Computed example of a mutant assay.
Amino acid sequence: MTESTSTGPAAAAPAPGVGVLKSVVLDVPDLATEAGFWTALTGGAVKFTDHDWITVTTPDRWDVAFQLAPDHVPPQWPGQEHPQQAHLDLYVPDLAAASARAVELGATVLRENEQWITLSDLAGHPFDLCLKEESDGVTVMGPTFDCPDASELAAFWSGVLGAPVAYDADGVAMLGGDRPVLFQSVADYNPPRWPDPAHPQQVHLDVGVPDLDAGETAVLALGAARLPGEGSGFRVFADPAGHPFCLVL
């Protein structure tokens, strides 16, 4: 887990991307419990519900969705046997108060230091509370993805989302824009092997596109791989580090 609030040499802005980031999606064994935790923690509100899906919109307009996964295998951070593949970073104005509130809601503290605290939610997903004294309550910094090479994965997602690489140094990279996405290099990285339940995804991104055929062609050209799974409004892919993601209409 790494807080990335400093800035490094910025790359030139890329051409317009394939799509826009719509949702950060967490696999969970219990929709109502997990959505309730994140709604209470962020002060968000339920935007959409279905039999296997709930979307919560935070006050700072991030959509965090929860997808029912009855055979969910929780991460066992910080090891790589059943690793996290991604986590959410949240800004808070007071670390102690925010951590106490998260624990009151059912979170578990995993690690503490002066600038951020790592906890796990009710489904075992790690997340970071990062100190930002000027933050207006709990706000979303962005999702952070583990990977073998942060620079390479940031370049891929820069092409997908059309956001510039705003920071790239010391094994950490970050896309700029109003929906930052972060990447951290991890030794002995163990990727998901979706849809194998023994090596499941934990978190994925939904990327909105106007046309699925054109979107598929574009992400494959950037280095994505097609995965099983599609419907009338979505298709499933993996990024170069093996993280599943969906193109959605």
Rank of each mutant, 00 (worst) to 15 (best):
E81F: 07
G43Y: 12
T49I: 00
R61M: 03
H82Y: 05
Q80M: 03
D63G: 13
W53R: 05
H87G: 12
W38D: 04
L41C: 01
D63W: 14
D50R: 07
W38S: 00
P78A: 12
K47W: 08
K47I: 03
G79L: 05
A45L: 03
L68M: 04
P74Q: 00
I54C: 08
V56C: 10
T42V: 07
T57W: 05
D71I: 00
D89A: 09
P70E: 14
H51K: 11
P70G: 04
K47Q: 13
V46E: 15
A40R: 11
E81V: 11
D71P: 02
H87K: 08
W38V: 06
P75M: 01
P75L: 01
A69I: 03
R61E: 06
G44V: 08
V64C: 12
V64D: 09
L41R: 03
V46S: 06
D50E: 15
F66C: 04
H82S: 02
T57G: 06
F48C: 12
T58M: 04
D52E: 13
A69S: 11
V56K: 08
D71G: 06
W77G: 11
V56S: 10
H82F: 00
P70A: 06
P59N: 08
A65R: 14
W38H: 05
F48K: 15
V56D: 07
P74T: 01
P78E: 10
A86N: 13
W38I: 01
I54W: 15
D60G: 05
A65K: 14
K47E: 14
A45T: 13
T49G: 03
Q80C: 01
T55F: 06
A65P: 14
Q84P: 02
E81R: 04
A65V: 10
H51S: 13
Q67E: 13
P59F: 09
D71K: 01
P74R: 00
D89P: 11
A65S: 15
T55V: 11
I54L: 10
W53P: 09
A69C: 14
A45H: 05
K47T: 13
P70Q: 03
P78R: 10
E81Y: 03
G44L: 05
Q84H: 07
I54G: 12
P59C: 14
D52Y: 13
D71R: 07
L41K: 02
H51F: 10
Q76N: 11
P83Y: 01
D52L: 08
A40S: 15
K47R: 14
P75Q: 01
P70R: 00
D63E: 15
L68D: 08
Q85S: 07
P75S: 04
R61D: 09
L41V: 08
P78I: 04
P74G: 00
V46P: 06
R61L: 02
F66D: 02
G44H: 04
H82A: 10
A45W: 00
H87Q: 09
Q80P: 02
T55S: 13
D71H: 11
G79Y: 03
